[in-house]
Simulated assay, not measured.
Amino acid sequence: MNVSQDTQLVHSVIDAITRAIGAKPSVLHEPCFQGNEWLYLKECLDSTFVSSVGKFVDRFESDLAKYTGAAHAVAVVNGTAALHVALTVIDVGKGDEVLVPAATFIATANAVSYCGATPHFYDCLPNNLGADFSKLRDYLLRNTRQSLGQCININTNKKIKAIIPMHVFGHPVEMDELLNLCKEFNIDLVEDAAESLGSFYRGRHTGTFGKIGVLSFNGNKIITTGGGGALLTNDSSLAKRLKHITTTAKISHPWNYYHDEIGYNYRLPNLNAALGCAQLEGVNRLVNKKRELYSVYKKTFEGIDGISLISEPRECKSNYWLQGVVIDERFEHLRDTLLKSSNEAGIGVRPLWTLMHQLEIYANCPRMDLTNAESMVKRVINIPSSPTLLMGS
């Protein structure tokens, strides 16, 4: 270990961030309210329709569908609820397995557990957090069999019902390769596009490739409704069922309350949707600012040995929701020092999530070799990513 070299690298990283965004204290990500947010919120409050009924919910769903190119959008209380319902309506249940990336936010795995199913973890690409579908295909060829049009795990004898790809930090995964894999192994596709509103794979918006896609509008996302999420689908019958099951499965009637199945009280309140409508009006500007921030970081990090930026994949347009840096394996021992020193300097940075199989609650779940994810978790750091950093606010 070269102490002086280590110290220089830490200082170089902090200096690069400071030169990019200025010396002012910065959090990892904060929302941007520079449009009609106050106007629409006041209009919603004046209407008194602040709960699950109101014009802003319908408008938000319509605007989301138009922006993403999906035939239908259904707004719900958060992205986790959206994932849960998406898996429920494609009949994921007890005794099933769902392929989930090891490198993801815990909501992806939790939603599988809510259905009584088991997460089955797969690896990412080396030096990239995109899913390694080639490696996964080889794994499935060795560890599954086909029976009556279903993919069966030969080690557990359970059905692998679905796969959830996650577009980490807004960078689209290789969807063509994934679609071919799903067709080959008879596996349903539910996209976790929670972080990728405004991201496109070969000109098509993320979340619109599988049976259902899921978005999140948490306070730290590219646009926010405070809390909130949405389901995207091109299937009209699925859209109808999604809306029904997320509104407690209540049969529409002027006054009677009759519910024809177990549903969920997941509908997005009108008040939150009002905020979302205003936010969505400015989404292109926010994406452009985030892409500009990446370019600024790329320039200030240029020439720093041992550090690289995570960039959008080929033939993709990423929203760069969170800017990410990868520490070379030679310097992976510096990750925690970088985290500590940066935060002490007023620069909000964070590590990658703890990998799903490294959590006690999911330690016994089936998994393939996860060498790449286990390397990346030691070396990835997110740096300040707010679009406001380049807006003078």
Rank of each mutant, 00 (worst) to 15 (best):
F133E: 00
S113G: 06
L140V: 05
H72L: 01
Y122T: 00
I152C: 04
A82F: 10
L148H: 15
A117E: 05
S62V: 02
T80W: 12
H72F: 13
C151G: 01
R145N: 08
R59G: 00
Y139I: 00
C115N: 15
A82D: 09
N157Y: 06
Y67R: 11
C151D: 00
V100Y: 01
N155T: 12
L99F: 02
G130P: 06
R145D: 03
K135F: 13
T144A: 00
A107T: 15
V57L: 12
L99M: 09
G54M: 02
H120E: 01
V57I: 15
K158V: 04
L99D: 03
Y139L: 02
V100P: 02
K66N: 10
V77W: 09
A71H: 13
G95I: 05
P119L: 08
L64G: 01
L99V: 05
A73N: 02
K135Y: 13
D96N: 13
G69L: 00
D132L: 01
I90M: 12
A75R: 07
N155E: 12
A102H: 09
G130C: 14
A70M: 06
G95E: 03
H84M: 12
V76K: 07
N128I: 00
R59Q: 11
Y122I: 08
N143C: 09
I152L: 05
T80Y: 14
N155C: 11
A65G: 12
I106W: 10
A82R: 09
D63G: 11
H84A: 11
S134C: 11
D96G: 08
G54K: 06
Q146L: 14
A86I: 10
V74L: 02
L64M: 12
T144V: 01
L140R: 03
P119G: 08
L136N: 05
F133R: 02
K94V: 11
Y122C: 05
L129Q: 10
R142I: 03
H84Q: 13
G95M: 06
A70D: 04
R142E: 10
F121C: 06
R142V: 06
D138F: 11
S113V: 15
A117L: 07
V98L: 01
L83I: 09
